[in-house]
Each structure stands twice: as C-alpha cells, then as structure tokens.
Amino acid sequence: MDLINWLVAPLQYEFMVKAIFVSALVGMVCAALSCYMTLKGWSLMGDAVSHAVLPGVAVAYMLNIPLAIGAFVFGVGSVIAIGFIKAQTRIKEDTVIGLVFTGFFALGLVLISKVRSSIDLTHILFGNVLGIADGDIVQTVIISGITLVILAILRKDLMLFCFDSTHARSIGLNTTFLYYVLLSLLSLTAVAALQTVGIILVVAMLVTPGATAYLLSDRFDVMMLIAMASGIFSSVMGTYISYHIDGSTGGCIVVLQTLLFLVAMIFAPKHGLLAKSREDRSITAADGKQLEK
C-alpha cells in the first residue's frame, strides 16, 4: 500500500493540505479559461497579460491594496496599450505584444527591486504554493469564485464570441463587453495562478489543458470538462510529486500538464497522431485497391 501511503502521508502537514487545495482550485479555474484562450487563439495574449501584471503586484504592495486590483489594472492596461499602439502605428500585432509585455514586466522588476523588503521576487516569478499565506488563500478563493460564476453565466456567449463574433454582434450581443470580460478574467486568474506556479508558468495553466482537451473532443462542453479534469489532476499530482522529490511545485505541475498533452497528441482517438496515420494508411490502402481494379 505504498501508493496510499504516498498520497496520505503528506496530508499530515497543514501546508500540504492548503497547497493541494489551492493548486487544484487554480488548476480548475485556469483550465476552464484555457478553453477560450486556445479557441480564440489568445495564447500570446495570455502570456502578455500574465507578465504585464507584475508592476501591478508591486504597486499594490506599495499602496497596501489587494494584489488582484493592481494586477487587474495593469493586465487590462497592457491590452489597451497593445490595442492603441497597433491601431496608431504600422507595427504588426505580435511585435506590439512582445514589446508591451516585456516593457511592463521590466517595469515590474524595477519596482519590486525597490520594495524588496516586503516581496520575494522568486516567489512571484516561480510560485510558492507550499508556503502560501492564509490571506493569499482567501484571495485565490474569491478570485476563483468570481471567475467560475462569470464563466457559468456567460459560458455560451463567450463561446459564441470566440466562434463567430460577427453573428454574436448581429444578434445584439455586446462583443466589446465580452472581450473585456474575457480579458479581465485572464488578468484575475493570472494573479491567482501566480501564487501556485508563478508568473513565468501561468501561461501554461491558461493554455495547455485547453489544448489537450481540444484534441480529445469535438464538443465544447466535453472539452471544458476534460480540460478542468486534466487541470485539477496535474495540479494535485504535481504538488504531491514536488513534495516527494523536493522539487519546484510549479515546474512539476506544468511538466505533468505537458505530459498529458503529449499523450493526447499521440493517442487521441480522432485527432491524435496514431489515429491520423491509421487514417492515412486506410486511405492509401483503399486507393491501392482502386488502382488494382
């Protein structure tokens, strides 16, 4: 019963119980959002926003307000800046995204280095879920709750926005509102995930589960459930593994997510590599038969 011992023994420590709870919650919320990110093609945007929240975190510390508010302002601000520069100059969007988020991130580094006494930069960059403070847990729970409620209500509108925003507008939906809702949720979850896996790896939480599920299902609702299940599984198991091997928690979680993706990429029943090569072979075989006749 080594496996049971492997799973149960860490739970005698309160910090492990907290860590598993927080990372599972964050894994689930990020995974739900990741479906929209992958379908809308917003991975780069997710990367940008998650980095751009850094100065917001620093400013929030200085002003002693909740991190989420600072992160939210700078996350949305970065996207407004991206939109403005793109509209006003001849520079292509990916270049604008690249230069804006690194600019924000660098500003964040400078600010944090000046208020170092209260923030540990490595915890923000790489996460510190094993040492998470109770105040941060409360914040994560609130952010996750808000995100899940909004997603539950606007699930279909956001799906339609990702799929066909022209139709969404033609039936009177406010697509500008939906755009900013999705963006705001992105900024908020980036803060929540920051505690677990850190700024650098947040984008994996916001992309990988959705990409894995996308290969496994042709139904949006099923895709959402698979993504959330894989997000929770990776977070919980990643936390356990990091405890047992005494390694980086964020790293373990994201490596597990990536492994799940690779498994799906190879073995997915319809969109996997094996299925595709089987399909190709059967087509070639059929062609061969036709030629023989």
Partner: peptide, 20 residues
Amino acid sequence: EVDWNFPVSVADVVMMGRYG
C-alpha cells in the same frame, strides 16, 4: 470567415441562431 475546427456540431451552430 468560419473556424471549421471549432468544437461545435451542426445543431450547435443552428441553435446559435436562437440565442437572441
């Protein structure tokens, strides 16, 4: 203009006409 890889079925798309 349509993303044909989007995970929706024929009936899902037609139902989108009813959202309003």
